[in-house]
Structure formats: structure tokens, C-alpha cells
Design a protein around this nucleic acid. Structure first.
Length: 356
DNA sequence: AAAGCGGGGGT
DNA sequence: ACCCCAGCTTT
């Protein structure tokens, strides 16, 4: 059985008229593809009409102000799509003389156009043999060939891309691509697909193995780990006598504090601004995982000459130390040198059970 | 390789 | 009140 021909037959019997498919203008095809990225038909359709109405050609879009483009996009979400749309319209006018590029590489190079959109435009507008790989296609192919590599991994994507390009009906790539996506959307659905009446069920490996429900496999995105990064910013004195024990950051440095800061080892860089003496200082951390940053300002007191002003900065989270830190705020020190700061912090944390 | 982007729909 | 979706850019 010829997969592509069978699929296209199915498509011709089942297709509905889609307003944005009734054109061979690459500009409008591009517009529709961008609008319908991550967007449901019901939600995007009105926007497609207002964009083609207000900007019937790429020149109209290129000449518009960014403000107007953004305003027309309002409510659709993923606003970088609108900015890229505008940028690319200007690129096409300036660099391509207003004519949409007609080869895959040039199309792919445009802002906001990735592999999916480039393949869609190349195949639908220019009849070029590039298979689209969107969520629908990944689902159909991963089931048909029982590919259990994660479809959101590089390996899994690559496998699917290779397979679907072999299946592609090279004489009618645009129709094939639309048929694949339509079949995935209407028949090979994410949940409860009607496999019993599927025209491909005898060839579908996942159906034969009973693994349709498990495919496509995706690696679950793990939530950011919350961790505590606690440290002190020490300020002593007042007015002209005030001293801040933290050096201003210079180009290329990591940490130039009075002491080696990190209480917990870190690898991902995190940078934050701290306001000291009316000027902004930058502090850089490293961490092994995404962090949530909270800066707690736990003091609003007058500083007297011999008091240490301890500002506690908490990054992240299983325990929030800021509440327990109030009694650490004022430490009367005759001479700061008598109290090696890291030791003091360590001791405090240890005594309070935070270093286990 | 992995995070971030914005809405809407489902649970 | 969450969780999920999905193509592209950025890091």
C-alpha cells in the first residue's frame, strides 16, 4: 500500500474548506502559519482576517508601525511572533525586493520561521519536497512506526523527520503535508483515537503492539528546583562613615566580596542588583539548577556607628531563612576583624539546623 | 539541551 | 487551583 496516496485520498474525501488555504500567495500562507502556531483555529481565524484585511501585501505590513502590528496582535499571545512578523516583512521588502523567497534555505533564515514553518511555506506555496513536522505529524509517525524515543528530544525529532521525508509524496508535497496534519488532528487524535476504524490500523505498529496510548512519548519537563542561597551583605557605620563590605562588580568577575560567598555550591549564573548607598551593585551567583529569587529587606532601622547592618538575601527555598534571621540583624561588633564573617554565618546556620 | 514565551481548554 | 499544549528563539 502506498501510504502517501492512501493518505491523500483520505484527505480529499474529508477536507473542509479552510479560508486561509484558499490562496497560493506565499505571504498569506506565511501569515497564516505564524498565526496558527500554538494557536487554535477558532482563536486565530479572526486575527488572520484582520491581518490580511489591514495588510493585504507584505509591503503594507512592512510599512506599518510596530505599534500598529502589536496592537492588531493583541490577545493572541506569544508576542515575539508579531515582532518577528514585522521584522521579516521588512526583510522581504528590503532584501528580497518584496518577493517572498522561494527556496527552503532562504525561507528558513527569516526571523520567526523555524523548520516547521519553512517546510509548510516551501511545500504549500512553492511545491518543494519538504515534510512538515508539527505536533500532529509527530503523533502519527511515532505511532505508525512505534517510535518510542521522546518526540521532544533531538534523537526522536530526527527519526521522525527522516521517516516522514521518506513517506512524502514528492509530486504533491503541499497536499501531503496538509493531509498528514489533518489526519493527526481529526483521526490520530491525542486522546481516544478510533483505531478500530482507522484506515491504517493494519500497518500501524503501535496499534498492533497496543501502545497507541503511550505514544508519542515525551520527556516530562521537570519543575525548577527551589533552593536556598543565603548570604549577607554587611554594612557598618552611617553617613560618611558607612562601610559596605561588598565590592563593586567589574567586567568579567564573578565575586569580589569581602569573603568567599557561596554557602552552597552553584553553577548556573544568576545575577542580581543590590542597591547600596544609592548606587546599584551587581552580585553574581552560580547554581546547578533554576532558582527562584527573593530579596528580603528585613531591616528599616537606623544604623548606629558600631552596628553591623546585615542584609539577608534569600535565593530559593525549602526553608526561608529570612524570618529566622531577625535576631541576626544587629550584631554589635567592636572590630569586624574579630569576627570572620563566613564562620559567623556558618555557625549560625549550623546551630539552627540549616546545614544538614 | 533546556528555558521562556501567552493565551485557552481540560481536570 | 493547577497542568498541558507546541514552534521558535535565546541561552
Amino acid at each position: 500500500m502506498d501510504f502517501a496516496l492512501t493518505l491523500i485520498d483520505w484527505y480529499n474525501l474529508n477536507k473542509r474548506q479552510l479560508p486561509w488555504r484558499e490562496t497560493d500567495d506565499p505571504y498569506k500562507i506565511w501569515l497564516s502559519e505564524v498565526i496558527f502556531q500554538q494557536t487554535r483555529i477558532e482563536q486565530g481565524l479572526a486575527y488572520y482576517h484582520s491581518f490580511t484585511g489591514r495588510f493585504p501585501t507584505v509591503q503594507h505590513l512592512a510599512q506599518a508601525s510596530e505599534d500598529e502590528v502589536m496592537k492588531l496582535w493583541q490577545g493572541l499571545g506569544y508576542y515575539s511572533r508579531a515582532r518577528n512578523l514585522h521584522t521579516t516583512a521588512k526583510t522581504i521588502v528590503e532584501k528580497f525586493n518584496g518577493r517572498f523567497p522561494d527556496n527552503y534555505a532562504d525561507i528558513l533564515a527569516l526571523k520567526g520561521i523555524g523548520p516547521y514553518t519553512a517546510a509548510a511555506i516551501a511545500s504549500i506555496a512553492f511545491n518543494l519536497p519538504h515534510a512538515v513536522v508539527d505536533g500532529n505529524v509527530m503523533r502519527v509517525i511515532s505511532r505508525w512506526f512505534a517510535i518510542d524515543d521522546a518526540v521532544n528530544s533531538t534523537v526522536g525529532k530526527k527519526k521522525i523527520e527522516i521517516v516522514v521525508n521518506e513517506l512524502l509524496a514528492t509530486h504533491t508535497p503541499g497536499t501531503f503535508n496538509q493531509a498528514m496534519m489533518k489526519f493527526g488532528a481529526l483521526f490520530c487524535k491525542p486522546k481516544n483515537p478510533d483505531c478500530e476504524s482507522c484506515i491504517f490500523n493494519t500497518a500501524c505498529l503501535a496499534f498492533q503492539k497496543g501502545s497507541v496510548g503511550k505514544l508519542p512519548f515525551k520527556i516530562k519537563n521537570q519543575p525548577p528546583k527551589k533552593r536556598f542561597f543565603n548570604y549577607l551583605l554587611l554594612i557598618s557605620g552611617k553617613g560618611a562613615y558607612q562601610k559596605v563590605y561588598l565590592n563593586k562588580r567589574v567586567e568579567g568577575d564573578i565575586w569580589q566580596g569581602l569573603y568567599d560567598f557561596p554557602l552552597i555550591e552553584t553553577e548556573t549564573e544568576t545575577e542580581m542588583d543590590v542597591l547600596i548607598n544609592s548606587s546599584v551593585w551587581k552580585v553574581v551567583f552560580k547554581d546547578t539548577s533554576p532558582v527562584i529569587i527573593q530579596i528580603s529587606r528585613i531591616f528599616k532601622h537606623q544604623l548606629t556607628h558600631q552596628q553591623i547592618f546585615a542584609k539577608f538575601i534569600t535565593i530559593s527555598t525549602e526553608k526561608n531563612l529570612s524570618e529566622t534571621f531577625n535576631d541576626f540583624l544587629y550584631v554589635n561588633l567592636k572590630n569586624l576583624a574579630d569576627y570572620p564573617v563566613p564562620r559567623l554565618i556558618e555557625q549560625y546556620l549550623s546551630e539552627n539546623g540549616f546545614l544538614n
